[in-house]
Design a protein around this nucleic acid. Structure first.
Lengths: 208, 208
DNA sequence: GAATTATAAAATGTATACATTTTTGATTTG
DNA sequence: CAAATCAAAAATGTATACATTTTATAATTC
């Protein structure tokens, strides 16, 4: 469990070259553990998209695939509004207030790094989604978000887009506060679609 | 890997009582293997919804939860049309013909059992979806379908609904053949929604 | 010399043994 | 007597050792 987190972090930092098959013994030695926990961690990371099967033998770090990112955001764009729609009736002042606190925390000076922003951003969204009390739907959405993490990674999004994104966040809270659920869901859909477009465009650029 | 399939089949047949925690040693002994492959299989089954974590220790067979089923179908209803929409332009005569063959195979006399019908039904859908060439989207949809398997299980759906379902399948092929992609997607959405309603209604009935 | 088969090496899968954690039951204490 | 603490047990997590499978290399054959 601990190894899983460490491996994921190291994958996120690009410690292992994409395309190269990873060997259990190498990893075991590298982290000073036996192959058993390595197997567990690799299996989990594979199921979460951080690794892909490499033929019959072993696993490899997959390359970043713009189409995969596009699909992930396409799905989130269609699923997350479902959660928000169901959460809306349960969003009381406390929950909305907490969400606002998170947004405020994102606007520090100097600005936070991409990783911290990403984390807060997701906390904002889950804070709202949890109120839907729909664990199954929530879990799937969370899994999709985890897969997206691999793409969001450590690239700093442009400050310009970060501003737009924040504006939309505040707007979303506003709409929810005023009970405009439908409008909020539509905005959320567009918000995710826009994030997807920015990411895919970035990935498709010739030289990364 | 072999153990995974066997365990899943046994879970599907209700060999283990829901709510009762499963112990690795028991399962290992029951299948005549050591605990290592058991751990692997349990982890995978847990990630696929066949088992849930039971506190800090062990896993348990979850009860059938109508709301979970509802969520699963809600998601499928929103995602599968996306696949079909993207598959439509690539659906040539061969693929549509193969899909029709599957439908024909479902109408034997005497009728097939629920398990066989379910398998063919999913083959029909995947045959179409694969043409979208969208592995990420496809995988998520397939995972959702796997989670649904637990609910579809071995309950024979009413013959009445089976008829309706088949009619919709043929209708879907018709629309695709005539290039009416939008109409086909809408029909698919309703088709899944209807299947979900039937299932949830069945699950919510007092005595199962 | 190319292709195919045989062989050795390397990696994964599994069993056994041990360490750690968690639960359970009893015992003590207020 | 209830609650809390401690000890023994049972279950899980991990290391080491072995078996099986897969890949790479060498040898043989046409």
């Amino acid at each position: 469990m601990d190894l899983y987190l460490q491996l994921k972090a190291d994958l996120q930092h690009g410690l292992f070259a994409p395309g190269t098959p990873l060997k259990q013994s190498e990893i075991a030695e590298h982290y000073g553990v036996s192959r058993i926990p390595v197997r567990d961690a690799l299996a989990r990371l594979k199921s979460e998209g951080w690794l892909t099967g490499h033929g019959k033998r072993g696993v490899a770090v997959p390359l970043l695939d713009p189409q995969e990112a596009e699909d992930l955001y396409l799905m989130r764009m269609h699923l997350e509004p479902l959660l928000l729609e169901r959460a809306a009736p349960n969003l009381n002042g406390e929950l909305l207030g907490r969400a606002r606190d998170i947004l405020d925390a994102m606007e520090t000076n100097p600005p936070l790094d991409a990783a911290a922003l990403g984390q807060l951003n997701w906390q904002f969204h889950t804070g709202l989604y949890r109120a839907a009390a729909r664990p199954t739907l929530f879990n799937t959405v969370e899994q999709l978000q985890r897969q997206c993490e691999r793409y969001i990674g450590y690239q700093n999004r442009s400050l310009d887009y970060q501003d737009t994104s924040q504006r939309e966040h505040y707007q979303l809270l506003e709409l929810l506060q005023r009970g405009k659920t439908d409008k909020a869901c539509t905005l959320l859909e567009q918000h995710i679609a826009a994030a997807g477009r920015v990411l895919v465009a970035h990935l498709s650029k010739p030289r990364d």
